Computed example of a mutant assay.
Amino acid sequence: MLQPSIISLVVTTYNRPDALAAVIEACFAQDDQNFEIIIADDGSTANTRETIDRLRERSPVPLLHVWQPDEGFRAAMARNRGTLAASGQYIVFLDGDCIPQRDFVSRHRALARPGYLVSGSRVLLSQEFTQRVLAEHIDMQGLGAAELLRLRSKGHINKVLQLLAKWPDKGRESRRFTWRRIKSCNLAVWRSDLDMVNGFDESFTGWGHEDSDLVVRLFNAGVMRKDGAFATEVFHLWHREAKRDLESSNRKVVLERAENGTIVATQGLAQH
């Protein structure tokens, strides 16, 4: 089975350098070091750039910083710019507030299969515990079963079984479309498939559904899905919800594209 020789982690960020540092530190500690990091920055200020510069000095893997001016929520464009800067055959999109486990890259590599994308999974952290993680630099990768169970019992994480059990790569494929677990905070796609559908659609403005749109168009193009649960979990740090002024109009576009079979993004990779 073909597996990617190099994986590119495209990590989106916007003005949250403490969370980004925790994510990148966890990337440095991966048990599979055959990958690169591209930080796709949606217009952060100098604090984030300085944090990235410090991290780059001791990065065990190639680390690039791709920045664009702050003109509102433009995560689709940031991810496209990160994709264009990547050299890997396989792109894993990760948000700058999602701390990966130590085997995150190796698990994604093992699940990679031509003709499929992998929709990863996440564990939500409470606001209180998120503040502790960032202030005390808690090593999330080093937490044992007893501590994870304690955190779950106190409501600081929303699930634990997925962290304690790892399922083999069997029964993960689906040839039917589902809206469940479409999150670009943990999503792996072959670069050739992204090129085929013209990447994320930058015509989506404001928060919401640009990730669903990508998965819909990939499905329309024949790319199936694999479920990354019980393998690829990340720790999603708490944050305030973004403004959702355009969420309903974005959702309407996605539903229309699911119905009419749209494949290619209106404004995507090819327009750069």
Rank of each mutant, 00 (worst) to 15 (best):
D53G: 02
F93W: 04
D70K: 14
P69M: 10
V105M: 02
A112E: 07
S87R: 15
V118T: 09
I91M: 01
A86L: 06
R132C: 08
C98K: 02
L111Q: 06
E57R: 14
C98T: 05
N158P: 01
E57I: 06
Q101C: 01
S59R: 04
T83R: 02
G96V: 00
G155P: 05
R122W: 04
G72I: 03
D97N: 07
M140V: 04
L124R: 13
E136S: 13
A78V: 06
L151E: 10
R150E: 09
A78G: 04
T51V: 08
N47K: 14
L151H: 06
F93I: 02
D95Q: 11
T48N: 04
R81F: 03
L55P: 09
I52S: 04
P62K: 05
E147A: 09
Y90W: 08
I91F: 00
F129E: 00
P100I: 05
L84R: 11
S153E: 14
Q101F: 01
R56W: 07
R122A: 11
R113N: 09
K159H: 07
R150C: 08
L125P: 00
Q101R: 14
P69F: 07
D97Q: 11
V160R: 12
D42V: 01
A85W: 03
I99N: 01
L163A: 11
G144A: 09
G88C: 10
L94G: 06
I37T: 03
L134G: 10
F93H: 05
N80Q: 13
Y116L: 11
R150V: 00
R58G: 13
D42Y: 03
P62E: 08
T51I: 03
L149P: 00
A112T: 10
P114E: 09
A135V: 04
I38D: 01
A165R: 14
T83F: 10
W167T: 11
R79M: 00
L149S: 12
R49E: 09
R74M: 05
F73A: 15
S119Q: 13
C98A: 07
S59I: 05
I39M: 01
A76D: 00
L148K: 11
W167P: 10
R49Y: 03
P114K: 15
W67R: 13
H137C: 09
A112H: 01
V118P: 00
